[in-house]
Amino acid sequence: MSNSITHSDSDNNDDIIDNYENEKSGDENEDENVDWIKSEEDDEEARKKSPDPTTKKHIVRNPIPKLNTERLKGPKGVHTIEKYFEDFKFHGKGYERHDLNRIMKRLEHWSHRLFPKLQFDDFLAKVETLGHKKDMQTFIKKYRNDMITADDDVITEQAVDAEDEIDIQMDEFDQLIAEQLEKQQLAKNKV
């Protein structure tokens, strides 16, 4: 009986050794698989790093207009705010809230004409950040000192008009408003 136990133990040992050798040879195959996978990953990384000369760059056909310093310096920019308040008259003491509302409505109208895609609060936040830029500060100083020439306006007008076509639509709106104002003036003059 002891012989059979030792014999079965030796059979088990042989099986264990065979299993171990099989597992070891399987591990070698796995190492080969891992090396093969790593080489594929390296190839992919190399392709990502070196661009393929046959790929084309994406060209934007219709650029999205942006609120930037060029637009603020443009033909409908900061220097036109003064025109919005030429005929503005304060009602006086006791009407401060009403006057402030009228001022804010005019500023909101100016902001919508300049850049209609933003809400007024967002517009003000963006203008505040753009106001810290050096070229905008220089423009404001020139404007305050009456150093803005017609040539400066023409250059910025061409840059802004090339950016988008929204201004064309707004000009038609301006014409309608001008016609209405003329009709009101004629009606006041007749009375």
Rank of each mutant, 00 (worst) to 15 (best):
K117Y: 12
H98E: 12
L114S: 07
V60C: 03
H112C: 09
Q119A: 12
G74M: 00
K57A: 11
D152K: 06
E165P: 00
H112R: 12
L100K: 11
T149P: 06
L114Q: 09
P53F: 03
W110L: 11
D171Y: 03
E82P: 00
K141R: 15
G77S: 07
T55V: 14
K73P: 08
M104D: 06
R71E: 08
I59F: 04
R102G: 01
V154A: 15
E82G: 13
F85M: 07
P65Q: 00
E182M: 05
D161F: 11
L114V: 13
K134V: 09
T156C: 11
Y84V: 01
F85E: 02
E86T: 06
D99W: 06
L72D: 05
L72A: 02
T129C: 08
Q185C: 00
T54I: 12
T149S: 15
F120I: 08
V127W: 07
A178D: 13
F85H: 05
E182R: 02
I155A: 13
D152F: 12
E179K: 02
F123I: 00
G92L: 07
F123A: 02
E128G: 04
K183W: 04
D146S: 14
A162G: 15
Y84I: 04
Y143H: 13
T69N: 02
F123N: 00
H98Q: 11
E96V: 12
R61G: 03
T129R: 09
M104I: 14
D151N: 14
H132G: 15
N101P: 01
F139C: 09
I64M: 02
D122P: 11
E108M: 14
K183H: 03
L176C: 01
L100N: 04
A162C: 08
I168T: 03
I103T: 06
M104S: 12
F90L: 13
Y95Q: 13
G92Y: 10
M104W: 05
E70S: 04
D135I: 08
Q158P: 06
R61W: 08
I64D: 03
F115C: 03
K134D: 11
A159V: 12
Q180S: 10
E157M: 10
D153H: 01
D161S: 10
M147E: 14
G92D: 05
K56S: 05
V127M: 15
H58T: 13
T129E: 15
L118Y: 11
E172H: 09
E157F: 09
V154M: 14
M170S: 07
S50M: 12
I155C: 05
G74T: 02
F90E: 04
F120E: 00
D52H: 10
Q158G: 07
H58F: 11
E182F: 01
L176Q: 09
K126M: 06
T138N: 04
L100C: 03
P51H: 03
E96G: 13
A150F: 14
F88L: 09
F115K: 01
E172W: 09
H79K: 07
A125Q: 07
K57L: 10
E128L: 06
D161R: 14
D171N: 02
A162P: 01
